[in-house]
Design a protein around this nucleic acid. Structure first.
Lengths: 202, 202
DNA sequence: CTGGTCTGACGTGTATACAAAGATTATTTT
DNA sequence: AAAATAATCTTTGTATACACGTCAGACCAG
């Protein structure tokens, strides 16, 4: 079974995004066009399109005549992150509570199950990705085209920051992650409540 | 003097963005790749790159196998706009007040002068573009990489919404626009104050 | 040595030909 | 005559060759 170019593009996008979020590809690392092209059986044209999409999510930065490089995590970008994240996350959650569909709530609960599983028997990578998936669904629920680009950028770096600072041995860290699980449950409850409220109005 | 491809790309980008913001290109209108390519003396490859950049700003939507189309302004997107705009604008202004540089404040004052000129002797298009320029500078001042993508999208549709609903004869509208000018002055004052405060801390 | 420029190798940017998908028109069938 | 289907035509997506810019190391001047 040979996959179409379209599928290969999607795979490459997912692969690179995952690798960047998990720090498998380090911030600042260069991406080699030609190498990736032949590795994934694509020509450079669609590959560069994938780079553009990654740039949109803040995964890579494109430098004129100097290729794509994994976005670095400087002190400045950490500061930017903690300035922007609370607002955008808050806004997304409010909208998610207003606009969520029953089916999406099911997805969210599944994602939270996945997160709990990762919490107890997964690696740091598993936890970061499961957490990412959870929040990604809240973004879908909010469904606001203006908020989404910023939200997606934040989620990518949320994962990278978790990966950077998470230390499995550290008891405080373990507590933090458990807190996240509780927080997720609160989010689900709030969204359910919002959904009920919306239903009553309709 | 013949301009380089790089310059032509920048020109095309600016031209299309302006045309879309001023509704010279209507929402929903299709963009013809080949026509624009020969019109601007570019091949399709860099032209499609420009389309991608426009898509990033929310100017156009790219449909699989069906080219680029000017983003339409549906009821849903208006709702999204008014949900997202207050938050993002507020956040950007707060950060602008914290991070602005003296030189940027000069730019902002110049932009406000331009807006006032447009207000008194310009067309609706002039006003919308001058207003856009003003807010664009506040975005630069805030300089938060996570907020910027959403902010840019909002600004584009801010201009388009103004163009849609502005009616020169309408006295209420005239008052609205004057209000905007006052609002701009307040913004400048607030940013100046923030700048002073930051200076005192340093 | 140190600083600067030149040159060649490497990698990115663009043009163009070709392939594939969508839209349109003509044809056939009921 | 209307609907379904086939043929074509247009437009988009991909591959590839070539042009151009960048970077590194050699070479020379100070």
């Amino acid at each position: 079974m040979k996959s179409s170019v379209r599928d290969k593009k999607a795979m490459l996008l997912a692969h690179l995004k995952r690798a960047i979020m998990t720090l498998e590809l380090s911030p600042g690392e260069d991406l080699d066009e030609m190498r990736l092209a032949e590795q994934f059986g694509l020509s450079r044209t669609p590959l560069r399109e994938v780079f553009r999409q990654l740039a949109q999510d803040g995964c890579v930065s494109l430098r004129e005549n100097r290729g794509a490089r994994v976005s670095d995590m400087s002190y400045a970008s950490l500061r930017d992150f903690f300035q922007a994240a609370p607002m955008i996350y808050g806004a997304v959650l409010r909208l998610a509570a207003m606009n969520s569909k029953p089916e999406q709530i099911e997805d969210l609960i599944d994602a939270q199950d996945g997160f709990k599983t990762a919490l107890h028997q997964g690696s740091g990578v598993d936890r970061a990705l499961a957490n990412h998936r959870f929040h990604e669904i809240t973004g879908e629920m909010a469904g606001n085209r203006y908020l989404l680009p910023s939200f997606r950028m934040l989620l990518v770096d949320h994962a990278r920051i978790s990966m950077t600072f998470f230390r499995p041995r550290d008891a405080q860290m373990a507590a933090r992650v458990s807190e996240a699980s509780v927080h997720h449950d609160q989010i689900i409850a709030a969204i359910r409540a919002g959904d009920e409220a919306a239903r009553c109005l309709a």
